[in-house]
Amino acid sequence: MMKPKISVEIGKLKLNNPVMVASGTFGYAEEFKDFMDVKKLGAIVTKTLTLKPRKGNPMPRTCETAAGMLNSIGLENPGLAIFIREKLPFLKKTGVPIIISVASEEKPEEFLELVAQLNIIEEVAAIELNISCPNIQGKESLIAQDPAATYKIVQEVRKITGKTLITKLSPNVTSIGDIAQAAEDAGSDAVALINTLSAMSIDVDKRRPKIAAGIAGLSGPAIRPVAVKMVWEVFNKVKIPIIGMGGIMDTASALEFIIAGASAVSVGTANFINPGVSLEIIAGLKEYLVKNKISDIRELMGALKI
């Protein structure tokens, strides 16, 4: 029987398979060790780190919506130093490529300091620039909503690291293709999309938002058609690899992204519901390839018939 090839490359990163776990939905991997063999993942993207510890937003921070959920965690994280001391050792032990998601709180220059410190850690396989978190209060607009700002930060970070650089894009834009183009032009090795959709849900008895911060990010299967369409749009605009995500729940939904042009996929909200689902998807992708007599998953990338 034919054994299909499912390894993929993202910049300098070589992944055994194209299934990774999305930032903010997998903690620092240790939370999932009872439910799956994390060593089998294509890659792990950590919860976003900021330079300093960050308390995040007030409660309530999450609520369920129709086929989805809202979150406004506000990037709660222990900060870079504590992460390196307490969380990185377990991640290193997994042997899986570790992608560190980073964000700035006040000034874009914080990205440079974060990347400079991560750059010297051998086990950090890649850096994801989270320029698209919708849940930092006080920010009028996101870097990922402005092609010029995106270009500037990616270019500056590019100058100081040779590690694979992934730019995480926001769906809350007029043309995501233009932002992806800016990231590519500035030297990003890949783009990851989509982050959550800006959204709101209201408790009609209290007449208050269900989330304390008011506005939050929508994720889950409800957003998948939006995400798939955006991956297709970006695929037709740039040459760098795309990491596709947004409501992937199973093999079929992962395949949608690959057929739309993604080189790899990230499982997010589904980790909360079925913590081992990523491994089920890896197995499912292999089955699909065998069934369709496809020897290499890369043949499927962007293979949408229109």
């Binding site: 903690g27 999932f32 308390k55 995040g56 999450t62 709660e76 909360f272």
Partner: peptide
């Protein structure tokens, strides 16, 4: 009692304030 999205300590959606900082109700 708290609403939880994951229940396994990953989402940080069920935190409570303690003298030692925020803690997850689920963990």
């Amino acid at each position: 009692e708290e609403h939880m999205s994951c229940g396994i300590g990953a989402c940080l959606g069920c935190v409570v304030k303690t003298k030692e900082g925020l803690k997850r109700v689920c963990q």
